[in-house]
Amino acid sequence: MAQHKVNYAAEGGLPVVLTTVDKLVQWGRSNSVWALTYGLACCAIEMMAAGASRYDFDRFGTIFRASPRQADIMVVAGTLTKKHAEFIRRLYDQMAEPKWVISMGSCANTGGMFNTYATVQGVDRIIPVDIYLPGCAPRPETLQFALMMLQKQIRRESAFRALKPKRLV
């Protein structure tokens, strides 16, 4: 993982006084986080399983979209190679605010077992990550749990906070 320090408390990520409007807006947001399909490697199989009928992401209001312009979260599922790093950044930039990122699996978190010249050692070197999901590969339940934790985090945020860049912009 990247070594740069992020002060979440200073950037509006932690407990703030919430109004009723905040609650309403964030309730809506948290129950319709549409995900950008970003399957890069074997974690994508688990991500697809989480989206399919048995685990059923739809009931959380999470529908996979094929376009970054319609997506709220990006589930980076798999190994990110250095050749591809440029494109993940471009797609992240194309997503409309507010946006979140789940880094799914060891490879996306830290490069995992691929301690080589061609693998990005953690996607947080390229894009800001909200939730790191451990596992190789994580089970669909784990992704569900990550999503629910993200929903909880979204509900905690203020709806009208100034859109500050998280970092790396």
């Binding site: 993982m1 990247a2 070594q3 740069h4 250095k82 790093a85 440029e86 950044r89 830290t110 490069g111 077992m113 301690n115 990005v120 050692q121 953690g122 070197r125 390229i126 790396l168």
Partner: peptide, 22 residues
Amino acid sequence: YEVDKIFGKEYRDVIGPENRDQ
């Protein structure tokens, strides 16, 4: 490579070296 390409060389200090010690 990815830092230089996306952010430019001056961003190396911000992002820091890779942690290669697994």
